[in-house]
Design a protein around this nucleic acid. Structure first.
Lengths: 219, 219
DNA sequence: GCGAAACTTAAATAAAACTTAAGAAAAATT
DNA sequence: AATTTTTCTTAAGTTTTATTTAAGTTTCGC
């Protein structure tokens, strides 16, 4: 799990980095508002630990920025300021948690676990045509609820078909979807893959339109 | 929004009830473990504020009960005990937040807003798939109740798999979870770690989807 | 029935994953 | 601080599986 630590005190930062890594996080560290903003461009950051007292700006701005652009990126605020107004402000701006210095690392870790647990929820993108269901995120396919195992190319081909239910696609079009641009295919791969797919699904599931192409689903 | 306040000090309770209602919550109040448990039968309770020091039992038991029966009911713990161990314990059991007495009501309200804002379900810090159980807080793993000792990297890899039960993850995705940003991995570490994990669990526990990735659990 | 297009099959080729083992790095112990 | 132990990374060799190819066969529309 990738975590961004925004902390200007180098001593504190160093110690925290080490112990966070020990906890299993991949830690990136910035000590300025500017570099923090840059790191936040990176979509793979999944968790932020944010110190509010920074030299070149206010941490609250970072928080605002995060909540504007990446609503559900969890942020744990860390600060020396202990006033209640600060806390309330931080939480209302969308921080998920708040910790006043000095704090025990164990408590930070516990709070981070809570925050990341919240994160582990999946969004499913499923395609369905007849009894055939595909979850493109999980790379799973099922026919009449029974899981079907498909090699990569077959999976991609089926996906291309399902995504265009009812629309006929030529072999050429399908080829373009399965292969890189430069990658010439000098044979009948699509036909072969179609053949393999047909063995795993009802015979008439993938229809042929001679001279035109292939379709799946209603027409 | 229906909120259950579990608090034995009648003076505190009375004040809190009033101000929580002022905040717009419908507040139910219990001052004992027993009555709290009864209230929790009611599905309409959407939020719990829980004082840990109760006369006829331990508030932690209520928390355990809640997390067992209603995983995603948010709980904010309230207590005079200020020790960090208590905090960690509460959070690891699935509490969503923690507040030490004395506290400013404004902070409690802010934290409640945070808690109710998340409709996403949280779980406790243990993951389980088949006979394999992991306590991410304690860093322990067991197979058929027998403890299994895993080095850090193997632990993290297994954790990544368990957290995504039923979802296939590519080697690249797994790598991203185990390694720092800049840290290029110029080899087949994931394969090697998978190999080692497989020696410690049933052969088919971690499934390979050639060209796609690895999964654990149902499919 | 003829020719083009699609289907089937099997072998050859290529790609991915598994297994080892050894050396490097990190952690624990003295 | 030095030594020992454990864990991690690399890389090469091996096995397994996927993909492409190509040749033979069938099907379809004219």
């Amino acid at each position: 799990m990738h975590l961004l630590l925004v902390e200007d005190d180098h001593l504190v930062a160093e110690g925290l980095c080490r112990s966070l890594r020990q906890q299993g996080y991949s830690v990136e560290h910035s000590s300025t508002v500017k570099s923090a903003m840059q790191w936040l461009q990176n979509d793979e950051i999944e968790l932020v630990v944010l110190d509010l007292g920074l030299p070149d700006g206010d941490g609250i701005d970072i928080l605002k920025h995060i909540k504007k652009h990446r609503k559900n990126l969890p942020v744990v605020i860390l600060t020396a300021r202990g006033s209640i107004d600060d806390k309330v402000m931080g939480l209302d701006l969308g921080a998920d948690d708040y910790l006043a210095k000095p704090f025990d690392p164990a408590e930070l870790f516990a709070r981070l676990r809570v925050a990341s647990r919240r994160l582990t929820q999946a969004q499913t993108s499923t395609l369905k045509v007849g009894d055939v269901e595909m979850d493109t995120a999980a790379f799973t396919v099922s026919f009449q609820k029974e899981p079907v195992n498909l090699p990569r190319k077959e999976f991609m081909l089926l996906k291309a078909l399902l995504e265009n239910q009812g629309r006929v696609q030529s072999k050429q079009q399908l080829e373009n979807k399965l292969y890189e641009w430069g990658e010439e295919v000098g044979s009948n791969t699509i036909e072969v893959h179609i053949h393999h797919l047909r063995k795993k699904f009802p015979k008439e599931f993938i229809k042929t339109l001679r001279g035109i192409g292939y379709v799946v689903g209603k027409r």
